[in-house]
Design a protein around this nucleic acid. Structure first.
Length: 420
RNA sequence: CCAGGGGUGGCAGAGCGGACAAUUGCACCUGGCUGUAGACCAGGCGCCCUUUGUGGCUGCGGGGGUUCGAAUCCCUCCCCCUGGA
């Protein structure tokens, strides 16, 4: 029911064209999953996103766990039925929330800590970085070997999520592709902590596979069944490589995760202190991964990072940028990001992106969208979200085509010359 | 005409003798956003001096006064609101 085939390899880079088959449809790679965390793409229906060209969507386990909502989904028979869609879906495991509700808040950073002005990078003072945590507020997350204790950011209620529970829930949610429960680390965690977290993620990976195998096929023992073929089931799992920004850890993690019977790989965790580090991390990781399996770079989605990552051999992405930028008033253009809340666009009759072929750019002016955004009309966000989602999907289309006809490097140059 | 209340930065609205260039909200401007805790967050928002600074200037309806010191107290004028004739 599942398969992944490499159709063509780029001659000048590690980029590749692939086809991933799932019971709910095919995904041409490289591609990006449109994120619909709580079972909804902010600003768009799944159907519209599908019509814009989306081939797979990412939904989040944590957001169906903290409120027990997965139990409702169970009564429907899975997310596809609950959402009433028949498109390929993936679920993240909740591993990212270990970070985003934990160190992410405590350290006040994203998973790429672009915290230092370039010239100051040598004098890095970690402690000077502002925590987003109030003085009286405790971290929302406690990490144990067995699993993670969360204080729900919504209700304050104590929750406990383990690798086993994450997989149990993901099996109930029934997305086509699920992810192992990992610990996503912070760029401000040092070597020792990152190593510890990586080891923990490795143990969890085995536990995830055990839990996954348990109910899919009959098991005589608790031992991992290395002969088990996920591709015959209705669901496959990706293992996640960790190791932060450390070469030896990335290598160790890639080798270890590669040794387990996952259908594909996620590359997660801290990707370093700046954009160049992302390339390094991928370069340390990907050579140790089975080249016949799909590689998903978790959470990345800025244009230059997409090109650089595909060049290193990444097949899949997922990112909140298209929809978040829309809510925050920013739109993709071939010249980079523009902030449509800026008053200068109120008199601009041009479309968001003059080269874009989406319906929004055909019909509406920057002025109108700017006006809607300034007036806080929800329609402005909807229009921008549609444009952004189309734009990013179209970018992937062009990338696939460029690999096919052999001018990926040229396309990359063309796009990046405008972006700072 | 009488009685009472009030006029504060683009707007709303605090302050009611020194820590006030003036709380706060909106608006405005500029940044940020990468496996979604936020249609969010951060900063700026009188003028001037190179962004500097325990810097200079102007400033709380107009004018005048008291005081070492006034958005804050007094006098006067103008305007607005409420009630009464």
């Amino acid at each position: 029911m599942f398969s992944f085939k490499i159709i063509k390899k780029d001659k000048n880079s590690k980029a590749r064209l692939g086809l991933l088959k799932t019971p709910h449809g095919k995904i041409n790679t490289p591609n990006i999953a449109i994120v619909g965390t709580k079972g909804s793409i902010r600003g768009l229906s799944f159907e519209i996103a599908r019509n814009l060209g989306a081939e797979i969507f990412m939904i989040n386990t944590f957001h169906f766990f903290h409120n027990d909502r997965y139990k409702i989904v169970d009564k429907f028979g899975g997310l596809h039925k609950f959402l009433n869609i028949n498109y390929p879906l993936m679920t993240d495991s909740g591993g990212f929330q270990v970070f985003s509700l934990g160190f992410g808040i405590e350290h006040g950073v994203g998973k790429i800590a672009d915290i230092f002005p370039l010239e100051k990078q040598n004098n890095a003072d970690f402690n000077s970085h502002k925590s987003r945590l109030n003085k009286n507020q405790k971290s929302l997350v406690k990490i144990y070997e067995d699993g993670v204790e969360f204080a729900s950011p919504y209700s304050g209620e104590k929750l406990f999520l383990s690798p086993e529970l994450s997989i149990k829930i993901q099996k109930i949610l029934k997305a086509d592709i699920i992810f192992a429960f990992d610990e996503c680390t912070s760029p401000l965690s040092g070597y020792e902590y990152t190593k510890l977290a990586m080891k923990r993620t490795h143990n969890w990976a085995i536990r995830c596979l055990n839990e996954f195998n348990k109910t899919l096929i009959r098991h005589k023992s608790n031992k991992l069944d290395i002969n088990f073929h996920q591709s015959l089931s209705n669901q496959v799992m990706f293992g996640i490589v960790q190791g932060g920004e450390y070469q030896d850890l990335r290598k160790e993690s890639a080798k270890f995760i590669n040794s387990l019977p996952f259908f594909g790989f996620g590359i997660g965790g801290s990707l370093g202190k700046n954009k160049k580090d992302i390339i390094k991390v991928l370069n340390w990781t990907i050579p140790f991964l089975d080249e016949n399996k799909p590689r998903h770079l978790l959470g990345i989605g800025e244009i230059d990072d997409i090109f650089n990552s595909i060049e290193q051999g990444i097949d899949l992405f997922d990112c909140v940028i298209p929809t978040r930028w829309a809510r925050h008033g920013a739109g993709f253009t071939f010249k980079g990001r523009i902030n449509l809340k800026s008053s200068k666009y109120l008199t601009d009759k041009k479309p968001i992106d003059s080269k874009c072929k989406c319906q929004i750019c055909k019909k509406y002016s920057r002025a109108y969208i700017s006006h809607l955004l300034k007036e806080k009309e929800i329609f402005g966000i909807i229009l921008l979200a549609e444009h952004n989602v189309f734009w990013i999907l179209n970018l992937f289309k062009e990338i696939r085509r460029s690999i096919k006809i052999g001018n990926f490097q040229q396309l990359k140059k063309e796009f990046l010359k405008h972006i700072k």
